[in-house]
Computed example of a mutant assay.
Amino acid sequence: MTEGDGRQRPVRILLVDDQPLLRTGFRMVLGAEEGLDIVAEAGDGVEAVDLARRLLPDVVLMDIRMPRMDGVAATRAIVDARLPVRVLILTTFDLDEYVVGALRAGASGFLAKDVPADDLVGAIRTVAAGDAVVAPRILKRLLDRFAQALPDPESTLPHALSTLTEREREVLVQVARGLSNAEIARALTVSETTIKTHVGHVLTKLGLRDRVQAVVLAYESGLVRPGA
């Protein structure tokens, strides 16, 4: 992200958590980092959506359980409004079905609240750059664990899947199984650059923002079955 004069501009962050003490801790950590700027804080989802609309931060650090509107609903509202804003979920150490709901709503990833500071900063920069921060293997375990929360594949099979070539569909399945581009390339005996191209085509054709959404769609469409 660069300014008009070519200088790198700070990543603008909206910090959302209903516990002021936690917000203070995150503000202290992030405020000490060059290139990160906390533009506002919110204590619930309603306030978060309003601030996201008005301020258009690059990244929203979003808590899950909050009064008035939880993080899942707030994430969905931000994504549905097509704001140029990406959401990074902050949750407790124990993973739960709310995380799956938030990822399905369009979040770009999630982190535990006790994540090391360096990992938090790196994740924010990654999300701001347009990538996801949930490792596919972690997401696969989440979806396996909470498969009952996903809709019936027969009712959600997206028509867009028919636009994929056989190889693109094969790559999507491998992505959903948690393989990296390099691992898929070795499995299919092609170059990693070729796989990157296929992944890009898959995301474009299916209207997805990142690999996280691709994994979720693969499960919801029935391409990959929980536990398989």
Results as ranks from 00 to 15, higher is better:
190 V>G: 00
181 N>L: 07
202 V>Q: 09
172 L>Y: 11
188 L>H: 06
175 V>M: 11
206 L>W: 00
187 A>D: 12
184 I>R: 10
208 L>Q: 09
210 D>I: 03
209 R>Q: 04
212 V>F: 00
204 T>Y: 07
201 H>A: 14
191 S>C: 13
212 V>H: 00
208 L>R: 08
212 V>M: 02
189 T>H: 11
213 Q>A: 04
193 T>F: 12
187 A>C: 07
192 E>P: 07
188 L>Q: 12
183 E>W: 03
184 I>C: 07
171 V>P: 05
184 I>A: 06
200 G>F: 09
199 V>F: 11
180 S>M: 12
172 L>K: 07
195 I>E: 01
190 V>T: 12
182 A>S: 13
185 A>I: 06
211 R>L: 09
172 L>F: 08
182 A>D: 14
174 Q>F: 02
214 A>S: 02
174 Q>M: 12
201 H>F: 09
186 R>Y: 10
171 V>Y: 03
186 R>Q: 14
184 I>T: 13
172 L>C: 12
204 T>H: 11
204 T>I: 00
172 L>A: 15
210 D>C: 03
207 G>P: 02
196 K>Q: 15
203 L>G: 05
169 R>H: 08
208 L>P: 02
176 A>L: 06
202 V>E: 10
184 I>N: 09
193 T>V: 15
213 Q>M: 00
185 A>S: 08
197 T>I: 08
186 R>F: 09
176 A>K: 00
212 V>D: 00
184 I>S: 06
170 E>V: 07
197 T>L: 08
189 T>E: 13
179 L>Q: 12
213 Q>E: 13
191 S>M: 15
179 L>E: 06
176 A>S: 11
214 A>R: 03
191 S>E: 15
204 T>W: 04
190 V>D: 01
195 I>C: 04
179 L>F: 13
183 E>L: 03
198 H>D: 14
193 T>Q: 14
196 K>A: 15
192 E>F: 01
191 S>R: 15
178 G>R: 12
178 G>D: 09
174 Q>C: 04
203 L>Y: 01
206 L>G: 01
179 L>D: 03
183 E>R: 11
196 K>E: 15
179 L>Y: 10
213 Q>H: 09
191 S>H: 13
195 I>L: 05
186 R>H: 10
183 E>K: 10
178 G>K: 13
192 E>Q: 15
171 V>M: 02
181 N>A: 14
197 T>N: 06
175 V>Y: 06
193 T>K: 14
174 Q>K: 09
189 T>R: 15
201 H>R: 14
179 L>C: 03
173 V>M: 04
185 A>M: 09
182 A>P: 11
182 A>E: 14
214 A>Q: 02
170 E>K: 10
204 T>M: 01
174 Q>E: 15
191 S>Q: 15
187 A>W: 07
200 G>Y: 10
170 E>G: 07
197 T>H: 10
183 E>A: 14
175 V>T: 07
173 V>L: 07
169 R>A: 14
171 V>K: 01
191 S>F: 13
173 V>G: 10
186 R>L: 13
197 T>V: 10
185 A>T: 05
196 K>F: 08
180 S>P: 05
202 V>A: 08
180 S>I: 03
214 A>V: 00
190 V>A: 01
175 V>C: 08
207 G>L: 12
188 L>N: 03
195 I>Y: 06
